[in-house]
Amino acid sequence: MSSCPGILYCNCTYAQVLDPAAKAAVLRALCDSGQSFEAVADLCEMSARKDPALQRLTAGGDVKIVACHPRAVKWLFAAAGAPLDPARTEVVNLRDATPAAALERLAAADLRPNLPPGKALPADPAATSAEPHPSA
């Protein structure tokens, strides 16, 4: 797999919304790849906690996030005061993609940004207590 962009895998631990076999196949391939990656139990839980790790996970460049629908992922991060950079984020949607298709995207060196376009996000991602709002 390529050394860049960074990879963030969401295990969706507290729900059965992703196919367990698909999750296991992707995680196993990441583990076997030898390369570095980030894995989280449940992005939803981290968003509700406003976990500072979300700031860290989005810092430092292009990222491919293995999770669910890009619209949900976008606003989970924003709600935690850690908005994703739409130009530097690709969400690999395990609700839709087969494990093979997901792994192909993770192995690809290119990034295909796919967060839904929309209004601007809050300018100051450092403010963890700040909530996004329409005029921000």
Partner: peptide, 25 residues
């Protein structure tokens, strides 16, 4: 794989540092 799966099932987030690839600062 078992160790990482186990930690994720217990609710932890984890950085795997291998060779190549990028981790959060």
């Amino acid at each position: 794989f078992q160790a990482i799966s186990r930690l994720l099932a217990q609710g932890y987030a984890l950085t795997r540092v291998g060779h190549g690839g990028r981790t959060a600062p």
